[in-house]
């Protein structure tokens, strides 16, 4: 436990003392902020129209904030996260492999599991801080409107789960190479694949169902509707478990190859 904590602390400190962390957070907030602004303008526009219509026709139409704003915003944020996370995790093992500190870590009396969990937790902590900053959007909506809170919280929980799965892939890929660019591009490619595979899932039949089951974004959908389904939790948890297991194997095999 102590070893995991020490690895976590070192990596987290290193993330937050490098400009990359701030660039990634700034990018995430800038892009999601843009979407928030665009969605908000559209929403206010629609609401205005609805009000005018209501005056003319003498009956009111309510426009659902959750439906019109929160769901598309969360959807956008999950895609942006897929783009940002590779930039976070690219350092994870790659930097140690490059600088030779991997030799320090692997000759210290700490287990591979402690090492992997510590490194994962540090990258995930950076991602989480990004998501926490993005809580500003629901807060703004709550100040100026009257959205349902539960679906928003569920959506953010989904963002964290999606993020955890993506971070675990990033950590895995970074354990393959000492080149951070390759680590980032590789992670990104895999996440794109896991996103796009969902597009094949629109038809019917076993293949379609499988494709849509594998899609990492598809499992987000229910969360943005405010529905909590343990099936999705199981999906993300097994995803994480498999990635950590493969990372373990990857580190063991570097030892054999030298």
């Amino acid at each position: 436990m102590r070893n995991t904590w020490e690895i976590f602390k070192r990596d987290a400190r290193s993330y937050f003392s490098s400009p990359i962390a701030y660039v990634v957070i700034a990018l995430f907030i800038a892009i999601s902020g843009f979407f928030f602004y665009a969605l908000l303008s559209r929403f206010l526009n629609l609401q205005m129209q609805a009000m005018m219509q209501a005056q003319q026709m003498g009956r009111s139409i309510t426009i659902n904030v959750n439906q019109m704003m929160v769901r598309p915003l969360l959807g956008n944020m999950s895609i942006i996260a897929l783009f940002m996370i590779p930039m976070i995790t690219m350092r994870s093992f790659s930097e140690d492999k490059k600088s030779g500190t991997m030799e320090l870590l692997l000759t210290s009396p700490i287990s591979n599991t402690q090492l992997i969990v510590g490194k994962f937790a540090a990258a995930f902590a950076l991602y989480t801080s990004m998501v926490i900053i993005a809580l500003v959007y629901p807060v703004v909506l709550m100040i100026f409107g009257n959205p349902e809170i539960m679906p928003m919280l569920m959506g953010y929980l989904g963002l964290l789960l999606l993020g955890a799965a993506t971070v675990s892939v990033g950590v895995l890929i970074s354990s393959f190479t000492e080149n951070q660019i390759i680590a980032a591009v590789g992670t990104f490619a895999i996440m794109m694949l896991l996103w796009m595979i969902g597009w094949l899932g629109s038809g019917s039949g076993a293949f379609s169902e499988l494709a849509s089951y594998l899609s990492i974004i598809e499992h987000m959908d229910d969360f943005t509707k405010g529905v909590f389904d343990t099936a999705h939790l199981v999906y993300y948890a097994s995803f994480l478990f498999v990635a950590v297991f493969l990372t373990y194997q990857s580190i063991e095999s570097t030892k054999w190859r030298g």
Binding site: R2, N3, E6, I7, K9, R10, S14, S17, S18, S99, G100, T101, M102, E103, L104, L105, T107, S108, P109, I110
Partner: peptide, 25 residues
Amino acid sequence: YLPENPPLYLDMKVEDYLAFTAAIN
């Protein structure tokens, strides 16, 4: 163990680095 290339974290202060290596040992 002192490997051929000293396994250092360049972005750390000497003291913090030694505290880290002490802890994981």
